[in-house]
């Protein structure tokens, strides 16, 4: 499943994922944003892996925020934007 969100004033935030027994699986964040250090990408993917599909956007954003390596810098992307992209991917699954 695939969700995209063009963050206002930011870049395109994309989530591809599967759902396994009501939990997020094979989560892959991508897009044309800027993120440093680049290992933060895998840290975010791992943090979202296995989370319940029942989490609301605030909780998803918290999961992402807590997973960021110290000193992470985001430009054109945010934990909130990632949460929206996850939500959109899940809605794509439902339809």
């Amino acid at each position: 499943m695939h969700g995209e969100y063009k963050m206002p004033g930011g870049k395109l935030v994309v989530i591809d994922l599967d759902v396994r027994e009501d939990h997020l699986a094979h989560v892959q964040l991508s897009g044309d944003f800027f993120l440093e250090p680049d290992q933060a990408l895998q840290a975010i993917n791992r943090a979202l892996e296995g989370r319940s599909i029942e989490l609301d956007d605030d909780a998803l954003a918290d999961v992402v925020r807590d997973a960021l390596p110290p000193g992470t810098v985001m430009y054109g992307i945010s934990p909130e934007a990632i949460a929206v992209a996850v939500r959109r991917a899940l809605l794509a699954e439902a339809s």
Partner: peptide
Amino acid sequence: IGRFQSLRN
């Protein structure tokens, strides 16, 4: 492609 872009997408 950019560092964080999905090749397939």
